[in-house]
């Protein structure tokens, strides 16, 4: 089965969804799940299972790749009764969070539940991440050095 075929042109949206599901906190995923009026049956196809991803860097920052070291990653694939497959993966070892993320990935692909996933999970997670980044950027900006030239002796 090829999910890419199912999604077709909204690849960028799918990328955003999968990326946000990877970064949603376990609490956010659980809350959204609890808010969900009708909990779907989700059959596990693969996982949730934890393994490694080899993280690559580039020599000099932009040169050829080299293997920097590994990171833990957890992934899951589920299938809803409707036949829609959901897939999720995230850094770390939280299997329950990734299983929920896979279910939400499937629900996002179904027209009837896409708005719910967007409203209750993706939008709040996106807003939180943006706020965290903004706060960090502002805290860092406060440590920026403002150089000033010393006035020389001549009056």
């Amino acid at each position: 089965m090829d999910i890419a075929e199912q999604t077709g042109p909204d690849q960028a949206e799918r990328r955003r969804t999968v990326g946000l599901l990877a970064r949603a906190t376990p609490g956010e995923l659980r809350t959204a799940w609890e808010t969900l009026p009708e909990k779907p049956e989700a059959k596990p196809i693969r996982g949730p299972e934890t393994g490694l991803v080899m993280v690559r860097g580039r020599i000099g920052g932009g040169g050829d790749p080299f293997n920097l070291g590994e990171a833990t990653i957890t992934r899951a694939t589920v299938m809803l009764a409707s036949g829609t497959a959901g897939h999720a993966q995230a850094l770390g070892t939280n299997k329950e969070a990734v299983r929920l993320a896979a279910i939400f990935d499937a629900l996002w692909q179904e027209p009837g539940t896409r708005d719910f996933v967007e409203r209750e999970l993706l939008s709040p997670a996106e807003a939180r991440l943006a706020a965290e980044d903004e706060r960090k950027a502002q805290e860092t900006a406060a440590t920026r050095v403002d150089f000033f030239t010393m006035v020389r002796g001549e009056d």
Partner: peptide
């Protein structure tokens, strides 16, 4: 960002972020 190609999707997706230190 750490991204990985997902064959099931046919494109790369973010797995989340890691912190790194780089020295040039």
């Amino acid at each position: 960002e750490v991204e990985i190609e997902v064959p099931e999707l046919g494109f790369s997706v973010s797995l989340g972020r890691i912190q790194v230190t780089e020295c040039q």
